[in-house]
């Protein structure tokens, strides 16, 4: 190897002019490789993102020419009770979802990290909800939650709890939607946590055991700190996706009852694609982006407090 690089030395060190043209050649090649992706990126991602920001300052139905209205849309949003409601709902959904989902994912990751017979099949089952589309899943859960014939009310009846209108009562509907979302996402997040769990050095557990730590001690003092970077990462993903929640509400409650489950994304869809208030809807999109962005920054800074960087 050294002999080869020694002999090739004069070849790879060209004169100055030649080197410049080599660079240009490489840059041209890079352009060729990038071009298909770059065109798509500009046309369908970056371009639309910038355009949408501009549309947010107009009144526009998507067909006629837009009317510039300045920050009017944002002022109206700040006073739109339904929009404010949708923000509160979405925040509430996100809080419930992230907390419940993290708890269940950590538990399931630990269960899946075992040598039990048929563990592969158990992992398969836990991942199944993740690869099925949310619409089918929502249909199935609508049926499970059915007030008169639903199996959820039947099972609760067995332990003496009276039937609940899961999707029909403002207090319960959001909770019911969170439960099904946790069911759908837990397996995926647990699987990611599982790979974090398996990279914890076994000697840490051995050492803790020798020091007389109980199972619970080991969980609190070894597992959680070692897993915290992965938990942080999964929690961020969960937060970002749940702030965009749409399908569950759209299929199961249509935002009801009494707008108790209308989400920001659903408000946006209704404004943009049913009322064709595209300027207004674009402003909603940017508020959504801003909220997610700020939360991400806050979490990122809070990272130092509770994430253990070994």
């Amino acid at each position: 190897m050294t002999a080869m690089s020694a002999t090739s030395e004069p070849i790879v060190r060209p004169r100055r002019r030649f080197r410049v043209s080599m660079r240009q050649h490489e840059a041209l090649a890079a352009l060729g490789f990038l071009l298909p992706g770059l065109v798509m990126f500009l046309a369908f991602t970056l371009g639309p993102a910038l355009f949408s920001f501009a549309v947010g300052f107009t009144r526009w139905d998507g067909l006629s020419s837009p009317v510039w209205t300045g920050i009017d849309n944002y002022i109206r949003l700040a006073q739109d009770p339904l929009f404010l409601k949708s923000i509160v709902n979405t925040a509430w959904f996100t809080l419930l979802f992230v907390v419940m989902c993290m708890a269940s994912s950590i538990l399931v990751a630990m269960l899946l990290n075992s040598r039990a017979r048929g563990i592969g099949f158990a992992r398969f089952l836990w991942l199944l909800p993740f690869v099925t589309d949310m619409i089918s899943v929502s249909m199935v859960w609508t049926w499970l939650y059915h007030f008169r014939f639903g199996v959820v009310n039947y099972l609760l009846g067995l332990v003496g709890i009276p039937p609940q209108a899961w999707l029909g009562s403002p207090e319960l509907a959001m909770f019911a939607l969170v439960v099904l979302s946790v069911w759908r996402w837990t397996g995926y997040y647990a699987l990611i946590l599982l790979s974090g769990l398996q990279s914890v050095p076994p000697d840490l557990y051995e050492a803790a055991k020798i020091d007389g730590a109980t199972r619970w001690d080991r969980f609190i003092n070894v597992t959680l700190p070692m897993l915290s970077p992965t938990i942080f990462f999964v929690a961020m993903m969960a937060m970002m996706s749940s702030f965009q929640v749409f399908e569950q509400m759209w299929v199961m409650t249509k935002g009801g009852p009494n707008d108790a489950t209308i989400s920001v994304a659903m408000f946006l869809y209704i404004q943009g694609f049913q009322f064709l208030n595209m300027g207004y809807a674009s402003a909603v999109a940017w508020v959504l982006f801003f909220i997610i962005f700020v939360l991400t920054i806050i979490n990122w800074n809070a990272r130092r407090r509770w994430v253990f960087e070994g």
Partner: peptide, 14 residues
């Protein structure tokens, strides 16, 4: 990090 909702409307118009 941009949510899909942001690009949705311009994409649709395009």
């Amino acid at each position: 990090v941009i949510p899909v909702q942001v690009t949705l409307i311009p994409q649709y118009v395009l």
